[in-house]
């Protein structure tokens, strides 16, 4: 997993609540059996004016100039700023894959849908929960300038804007460590293999019907 330590980048404001996973990456692209190739289809329905399929040459599609992602000033944006309940909908991990591959390293919102939140951590994408008032303050800053850059320091748990605006944020310590070190969770869990086996033999005794072998 990609580490996340400290990132500085332009903030792209997406001023909508309930951005769902069908919007983040539409289902026709989920037919892929790979982990990559989704960046070009991030926010596909909003980003392009004509419909796309997995075998479409996306470089020839008509761009929607009204959608914020297509504004030249946000070309290198690294931080996505959003409203409540970001990532609601399906469990597709293709959503954080698409966001990461496009170039974002963090999404800041007042709240996230649970599965999206969880999936993000597994991929080195930081879903950062911030009080609604602080999110409002950030929206105001992005709207008041051509671009607005922000530094996210995960170790220190701080945000620092280019104009000196700053705030702290909280994060679950285990998830923080995993992100800082880019840890492989499966490897970590397998270190507890003995405990899993012990649980399993208790379970087999208590509820043998759950085991068919």
């Amino acid at each position: 997993m990609q580490q996340f330590i400290r990132e500085t980048g332009v903030v792209m404001p997406l001023d909508r609540a309930n951005v769902d996973t069908d919007q983040i990456i539409p289902k026709q692209y989920l037919k892929s059996i790979k982990r990559t190739g989704f960046g070009v289809n991030l926010f596909d329905d909003w980003r392009y004016l004509d419909p796309g399929e997995p075998d479409t040459d996306h470089s020839t599609r008509r761009i929607n100039p009204e959608f914020i992602l297509n504004e030249p000033r946000y070309r290198d944006a690294k931080i996505l700023l959003a409203r409540d309940n970001f990532g609601c909908g399906s469990s597709r991990e293709h959503a954080p894959w698409a966001i990461m591959e496009y170039g974002f390293r963090a999404v800041i919102a007042p709240s996230f849908a649970d599965i999206f939140f969880n999936n993000s951590f597994k991929n080195g994408l930081l879903p950062l929960v911030l009080d609604a008032a602080l999110v409002d303050a950030l929206f105001a800053r992005t709207q008041g300038a051509e671009t607005y850059a922000l530094t996210i320091d995960l170790a220190a748990q701080t945000l620092l804007g280019e104009d000196g605006w700053s705030a702290g944020f909280s994060i679950d310590p285990f998830r923080k460590t995993c992100l800082l070190e880019g840890l492989d969770e499966i490897g970590l869990t397998l270190k507890e293999a003995d405990a899993i086996r012990a649980y399993e033999s208790r379970r087999r005794a208590d509820a043998p019907w759950l085991f068919r072998e």
Binding site: I115, N119, K122, N123, E185, I186, A193, I196
Partner: peptide, 21 residues
Amino acid sequence: AHGIGTSEVEHVLATQCLVTQ
């Protein structure tokens, strides 16, 4: 019963467990 992402699918396949809150 709840939904999981693909990394967790791999985690469950490999360990029969899920790290969860």
